[in-house]
Design a protein around this nucleic acid. Structure first.
Length: 418
RNA sequence: GUGGGUGUAGCUCAGCUGGUAGAGCACCGGGUUGUGAUCCCGGGUGUCGCGGGUUCAAGUCCCGUCACUCACCCCA
């Protein structure tokens, strides 16, 4: 039996894995600087949490969840998105009773049973954050700007921020009726008709040309906002302008999760193919209440780490050099191997990245390994040197080599590397 | 769930109308147990995705299946 990674999953190996870690770091740093604390929630939750929190009418819940029963008969589901679990934690630990807003960030994998394609996997990693308990458009702008700062710190340029408002419980129902009325007059297939009933907003961003052609005169959310929602959207925009965050108002932007209200946004990258969204989020007033908490507003985002990697590749950006070895031990014979084994450990304890030729490779092979390790120095040690109480310290770039007393080798290397 | 494309070495790929599996790179060893990145020599590391069929003979033709990939729906 030959095993391979399950469908829709993949391995991240060196040296690219170093870039992956760097992307997680780059996307989360702006959140940390903005006062968001790290939260880690389980990779699986009670199935009902997602059914209630994400919404039964969403594709995520209706057909993409990895649901299973544990030995206690509980129905559990592998986390399909990050927000619901964080809301559960906020309610369970009554974080909403403390200082507001509650600001949390997280990273980790999400699981969705989907048909894989470019940029879409059954397991994907996000960096996300949530700000709960304060209803202030400035907070919306902060959240959007944090995401933009993350992408910008990675030198990404070929992306666009789309922004809109989906309205609230005041104006959404009326708009929804208007939209359904319009959509009912169109020539749509059965699948889409069903969607009109479940969540008509989502028909707006259907990509099929024959559908889009019929939507040119469709009523759009930003044109039917109540006064409060319109003022909110305008305030978010003016804050973004103040920060110099470029955005485009995208009236057809809709998201597939039911909980979004008012501010909704999405970052799309031009180098990615069909799955172009590298991150998105929005306001979800009412979600906390849905999962058993008080009626409090909230806003957050999820940024796709896998897709950000693809975006970086599309722009030809190399993110991080793999952590490189600085000193490489080349032993000649058993005695030298034993001595170098300890010496290399001492270098590491002194904070110097060091490695050693294992397996008695012979001088040529060991030197080759030293070269490939990227080390600045090779320490060559043989019987002759041990007799003399020295080691040969070779600069692999210049080829120069000097004898250094074994006792002071760590100190000498430390000095030369700084 | 639906549709298209592709499966040959670690990677990128060649292999014609069927005739017993190759190249480049990578890797390993040697040239030199006291010096790497250059050079020279040597080594193929393979379930031709898998199963079945046709044939004297299948990487090649047929059927099935699986995987990968791209796209739709949807999302990061």
């Amino acid at each position: 039996m030959r095993f391979s990674a399950p469908k829709g999953t993949y391995d991240i190996l060196p040296p690219e894995s170093a870039a992956f870690l760097a992307v997680v770091e780059a996307l989360s740093r702006p959140a940390i600087l903005a006062g968001y604390g790290y939260v880690q929630t389980p990779l699986f939750e009670d199935t009902a949490l997602y059914q209630r929190g994400v919404g039964e009418s969403t594709d995520v819940v209706s057909k993409e969840m990895y649901t299973f029963h544990d030995k206690g008969g509980r129905s559990l589901t592998l986390r399909p998105e990050g927000t619901a679990g964080v809301m559960r934690a906020i309610v369970e630990h009554r974080l909403y009773a403390g200082q507001l807003p509650v600001k949390l960030w997280y990273t980790g994998p999400n699981f969705r049973y989907e048909q894989p394609q470019s940029g879409r996997y059954r397991q994907h990693v996000q960096v996300g954050l949530e700000a709960v308990g304060v209803d202030d458009p400035a907070l919306d702008a902060e959240v959007v700007a944090i995401a933009d700062d993350g992408y910008r710190s990675l030198q990404l340029t070929d992306y666009t921020l789309g922004l809109t408002s989906l309205g609230d419980e005041q104006c959404r129902p009326g708009y929804r009726r208007l939209l359904v009325e319009f959509l009912d007059g169109l020539d749509l297939d059965a699948d889409t008709r069903r969607r009109v009933q479940l969540n008509p907003l989502r028909v707006l961003d259907d990509k099929r040309p024959n559908v889009q052609a019929q939507l040119v005169d469709a009523p759009l959310p930003p044109d039917h906002l109540c006064g409060d929602c319109a003022a909110h959207l305008e305030s978010v925009q003016s804050r973004l302008r103040a920060l110099g965050v470029p955005y485009v108002v995208s009236p057809r932007l809709v998201r597939g999760l039911d909980y979004y209200t008012r501010t909704t946004f999405e970052f799309t990258h031009r180098g990615l193919g069909a799955q172009a969204s590298i991150g998105g989020g929005g306001r979800y007033d009412g979600l906390l209440e849905t999962v058993g908490g008080p009626a409090m507003s909230g806003i957050g985002f999820g940024l796709g780490v896998d897709r950000t990697m693809l975006a970086l590749a599309a722009e030809g950006r190399v993110v991080a050099e793999p952590a490189r070895c600085r000193v490489f031990g080349v032993p000649l014979g058993e005695l030298a191997a034993a001595r170098l084994f300890v010496l290399v450990a001492e270098l590491r304890r002194a904070g110097i990245a060091a490695d050693l030729a294992y397996g008695g490779r012979g001088l040529k092979g060991a030197m080759k390994a030293a070269d490939r390790s990227g080390a600045t120095y090779a320490v060559v040690l043989g019987d002759r040197d041990i007799q003399a109480g020295t080691a040969q310290l070779k600069d692999l770039r210049s080829g120069e080599q000097i004898a250094v007393p074994l006792d002071s080798l760590v100190a000498t290397v430390q000095e030369r590397l700084t």
